[in-house]
């Protein structure tokens, strides 16, 4: 298929990042969570894939949680600590970090499914065009420092914060 024709079809659905953002926004609204972010862990290193991270404290908390719960997460089980939860997705070594959710409102199956969709959309965006989704994926997965492009605010709670 000609590249311009292919691009036309792809453009008809908007960019992958927007679909991923909509999915995570829906998830945060559904669970009335303060933030939802997608993380990847390879060995002991943890990196942010995409998220609605509000502040540095949330970022640090999420990174620490993924690192600390590594053993449980590797077994494929969701981890709930207080009002925060880590839910493994079906994409290897990736987790959804849901912060400030009421535990009884946390639907693990839905979280895993929506987060998996969002991750798959992102994985399809292998070479983001300059200025459009650039920096979406952490350039170095061994680094725990997220790139600026990975952050975006979502939901009314994000606006309040």
């Amino acid at each position: 298929m000609r590249p311009d024709v292919q691009a036309h079809v792809l453009d008809s659905l908007g960019d992958a990042r927007e679909v991923a953002r909509r999915s995570l926004t829906w998830l945060a609204d559904y669970q009335a969570a303060r933030s939802v972010s997608l993380w990847r862990s390879i060995g002991d290193a943890v990196s942010l894939e995409l998220g609605a991270v509000l502040d540095e404290a949330t970022l640090t908390g999420a990174r620490r949680a993924v690192a600390a719960e590594h053993a449980d997460l590797d077994r494929g089980a969701p981890v709930l600590r207080g009002r925060s939860a880590l839910v493994p997705t079906s994409v290897a070594h990736c987790f959804a970090y849901v912060e400030d959710v009421e535990p009884e409102r946390l639907d693990v199956e839905t979280t895993a499914r929506i987060a998996t969709f969002a991750l798959r959309m992102l994985k399809g965006e292998e070479r983001p065009a300059p200025g459009r989704g650039a920096g979406l994926l952490a350039p170095d997965h061994r680094s725990a420092r997220p790139c600026e492009g990975a952050l975006f605010p979502i939901g009314p709670k994000a606006v309040e914060a």
């Binding site: 298929m1 292919q6 079809v9 792809l10 659905l13 992958a16 679909v19 909509r22 999915s23 829906w26 559904y30 639907d107 839905t110 499914r113 929506i114 969709f117 969002a118 798959r120 959309m121 399809g124």
Partner: peptide, 28 residues
């Protein structure tokens, strides 16, 4: 063709994500 399959899969995931959100909202 393989490249068409790739385009199709990409769009399929996007459409499924959109419809899943609608269906889950009303079902739940």
């Amino acid at each position: 063709a393989p490249e068409s399959t790739e385009v199709y899969e990409r769009i399929r995931e996007s459409v499924e994500a959109q419809t899943l959100m609608v269906q889950m909202s009303y079902r739940t």
